[in-house]
Amino acid sequence: MKGSYLKMLENVLSSLEVRENSLKLAHRYGYLPYMITRYIEMLGGEKEAEELLKSFEKPLKHHLRCNTLKVSDCRDLEERLERLGIQVDKLPWCDICYRVRGEGGVNLGATHEFLAGMYYLYRGAASLIPPIVLSPGPGDLVADLAAAPGGKVTHMAQLMGNEGGILASDINRERMRALRSNVERMGVRNAVLLRIDARRLPSIFQGFFAKVLLDAPCSGEGIIMIDPGRKKRTGIQNLLKFGRMQVELLNSAVEMTAEGGLILYTTCSIAPEEDEFVIAEVLRMREDVEIQEFEPPISMSRGITHYFGIDLPEEVKACRRLYPPIHGTEGFFLCLLKKV
């Protein structure tokens, strides 16, 4: 068996040399210097890294999803929003999704329409993609392993027409409250909420689900425009710790999936340490899972297979990435796997 990719990564990052150009950019944009060195390596140059840093300084446009569990015709919602002075444009790749062009001075998270569950509000477009890619149907049994606050669970319930069943788990007590609140508000009626460490779920649900979504807890290195505190929050050791936890979580997701079923691994991070390396490590450890090619609803970049001299398996290219300066969204990573 090939050596551990996470171990190789740990060796590289532990002795990472921060170059002068990284220090300058880190100082100018307020980042930990090691992050900049990684961005230069990942993107191929200082210029590309600075483009990324600039994009993290720009606010994202809100997006919203019309909830057809509560709204029979999304044009009615469009009209209601227009009356409030909110201007929206339908996304070309999702007929229930909208980009908010103008908020009209209205708090989008406090309108009667929001409170009544007619729409779900997003900070950016990327979180709309995973349920579309996983595409659960009405009769499916599905799991979402880090479900709070519930954007993807409520979206999947909508795609399933409130039929079938969704296990929505999260470990955090406060986040469970938010999850339940959103599930009720959006009229989701096919979900079971469970507060548990997802790494314990395989002992309950071995090979049970047709589709499993793991939007893994991560450093958030794709959503710095939403939470600038992330510029300095995660040191190298913590980043590596995230990677090890993500491997455990993804192994759990695979265990819970029935033969022939699909697992979608996503993060709101552009860090290969939490993305391609996690996928490569799980592929190295297991023989019952393989990467699936998929057609993303919007143009996305391919997965990275070379990083600080470490070569990852070629099939990791089938994973997809969103980069803020290229795609105009938050940074995001998706990889579809099949249990074989």
Binding site: G165, N190, R195, I204
Partner: peptide, 26 residues
């Protein structure tokens, strides 16, 4: 109020000695 599919998930949870946080139609 829970459907048959939701009950299948609940049955597994209960068999492990746990209980759901919430389920189905509240």
């Amino acid at each position: 109020l829970v459907s048959g599919d939701v009950l299948r998930i609940i049955d597994k949870i209960e068999a492990s000695g746990r209980y759901p946080y919430s389920a189905g139609i509240y």
